[in-house]
């Protein structure tokens, strides 16, 4: 599982006001099926369709990370971060290993769009992904501060791990 530590020099987090300015942070682009964790100011960018990204950050240490999973449930022979049931616990584990404190971890959830949102049927991949993320975070006792899920549009997401700011633009 790729783990991409931040490489930017130590500096104070720059608060954003709804702009994607990276504020000198290290830049990481997260491909589908990967997760990234950083202990230094880092801006993680990804693009989501029906996929879902869970962003975690620990306000006490400024450590955080993001995953980007495609399907909800993993299979026995493939336990990669392409699956939510692997990607969410793995992200929690990785941020804790990087030095975050469980008690101060908070989450944000993004993505889970559906092309046919207006005519949704019993099975909707985006909704399933988002519902799984919510359930796993609830089970892990991590509060979800914010979420922007569903709809019919893809999203570009930039997450600053050090202050938990998330910038989302519908595509």
């Amino acid at each position: 599982m790729p783990r991409l530590p931040g490489t930017a020099p130590e500096r104070a987090a720059t608060a954003l006001s709804g702009t994607p300015d990276s504020g000198g942070r290290a830049q990481v682009y997260l491909h589908a099926g990967q997760l990234a964790v950083a202990a230094r100011p880092t801006a993680i960018t990804t693009i989501l369709g029906s996929c879902v990204a869970v962003c975690l950050y620990d306000r006490s240490t400024g450590i955080g990370g993001m995953n980007h999973f495609l399907l909800p449930y993993h299979v026995e022979r493939d336990r990669s971060a392409r699956f939510g049931t692997v990607a969410v616990p793995a992200l929690v584990e990785e941020v804790l290993r990087a030095g975050a404190t469980r008690g101060t971890l908070v989450a944000k959830i993004f993505g889970g769009a559906s092309v046919i949102g207006a005519f949704k049927t019993s099975r909707n991949l985006g909704e399933e992904n988002a519902a799984l993320a919510r359930r796993l975070l609830e089970e892990a006792g991590i509060p979800v501060l914010d979420q922007d899920v569903g709809g019919t549009k893809g999203r570009k997401l930039i997450f600053h791990v050090d202050d938990g700011t998330a910038w989302v633009r519908q595509l």
Binding site: S50, L70, L71, S114, I116, T121, R123, N124, L125, G126
Partner: peptide, 9 residues
């Protein structure tokens, strides 16, 4: 999974 989701299946 994506194809089925797009087709509402």
């Amino acid at each position: 999974a994506k194809v089925r989701s797009c087709l509402g299946q």
